[in-house]
């Protein structure tokens, strides 16, 4: 009994020190003591972020072989390569918390780990590649800029680097849309159609309204998250609506209007039924994305085994 009390006391002390450190604005580093719940929250969030980068390679990769010019192909290849690189940094950041990349991939395959639901939507035309860069990366940046000051050091440093690259992607996506809006009638229709299909799912990327978001409070208290879902969503809407207007795209929201008093755009209701339906596995490409990842992973098993066997052989020789 005495021992339990002592342990409880030690736990309370640990939590107190930890929270003081957070409140001072110090970064938490891998070897620092941290509450289990903090560690678990970070593993969940960072691995989800890493999986999103990797699964996101699928809808974009869908257009690599059909990119319409050599320049467009180079930009798209470089972008997808960046996304894969972000996946790598993030897996490494999560590994500092005591989980391996293999374990994270297993959790993804078993459905226990998630990835951003936006990648369950298909890229149907070349304009979708523009819209993904502009809207999806644009939404991701708003979130990631905020995460640059997240409390966990390795995550925060990964975000600083990732943000630099994402801002290129966002501009390149916007350039595709702008070019198409200056192009033929068919191109303009393609661009508007991509906007119509991807606008609402992009707003959903920020997650449920603050009043409905279950994990926000701990994440805010521990400064993993620095701004709420609704704050970030609003920031994204405000900057993107203006960009759409400049190139002549219509935002598919009849309730959208500038609110002079608030200094923000008001927007129409988000279809949360669709959000939860897709999050829970019933979107256009959920099955396809996961089947693809599992198939490729399994097909590559013999390569990974061979590399490991070769490494061991060489180690034994030395």
């Amino acid at each position: 009994m005495e021992l339990v009390e002592k342990t409880d006391q030690a736990q309370a002390e640990l939590l107190k020190n930890f929270e003081e450190k957070i409140n001072r604005g110090d970064a938490i580093e891998p070897k620092d003591k941290m509450p289990d719940a903090y560690r678990k929250h970070l593993i969940r969030q960072i691995s989800q972020h890493a999986h999103s980068e990797v699964i996101g390679m699928q809808p974009e990769g869908n257009w690599i072989t059909r990119a319409p010019s050599l320049r467009a192909k180079q930009i798209l290849l470089a972008k997808i390569q960046d996304e894969g690189g972000h996946g790598l940094y993030l897996y490494s950041a999560a590994e500092t918390l005591g989980i391996s990349r293999d374990e994270m991939i297993q959790l993804l395959h078993s459905g226990k780990a998630k990835y951003s639901s936006i990648f369950n939507y298909p890229t149907l035309t070349w304009a979708d590649i523009g819209a993904v860069g502009w809207l999806v990366d644009g939404a991701a940046i708003v979130n990631q800029v905020s995460l640059q000051r997240t409390s966990y050091g390795p995550y925060s440093r990964a975000m600083v680097r990732i943000c630099k690259e994402e801002s290129f992607h966002q501009r390149q996506g916007y350039e595709i849309m702008a070019k198409m809006m200056q192009g033929t009638k068919e191109q303009r229709e393609m661009a508007q159609d991509a906007m119509n299909r991807l606008w609402w799912p992009s707003l959903m990327m920020f997650g449920p309204h603050d009043s409905e978001s279950p994990r926000t409070s701990d994440a805010m208290k521990w400064r993993i998250k620095r701004h709420s879902n609704d704050e970030l969503r609003q920031k994204f809407i405000d900057k993107t609506v203006q960009q759409a207007e400049v190139i002549g795209l219509t935002v598919p929201d009849k309730d959208l209007k500038w609110n002079e008093a608030k200094g923000h755009y008001d927007h129409g209701p988000i279809d949360w039924d669709e959000f939860y339906r897709v999050v829970n596995g019933n979107g256009p490409c959920n099955k396809q994305r996961m089947d693809h990842h599992i198939r490729v992973h399994n097909e590559g098993a013999w390569v990974r085994e061979a590399a490991e066997a070769y490494r061991k052989k060489k180690e034994n020789l030395n």
């Binding site: 990769g61 390569q81 590559g300």
Partner: peptide
């Protein structure tokens, strides 16, 4: 570039995409 998102490990997705990028530049 067809290997991008299809490679046996993520590092190879990056390497092969990067080579494809070099080659597209050379073609250009």
């Amino acid at each position: 570039s067809e290997w991008c998102r299809n490679a046996p490990i993520l590092e190879e997705d990056l390497a092969l995409t990067n080579f494809a990028l070099d080659m597209t530049g050379r073609a250009q």
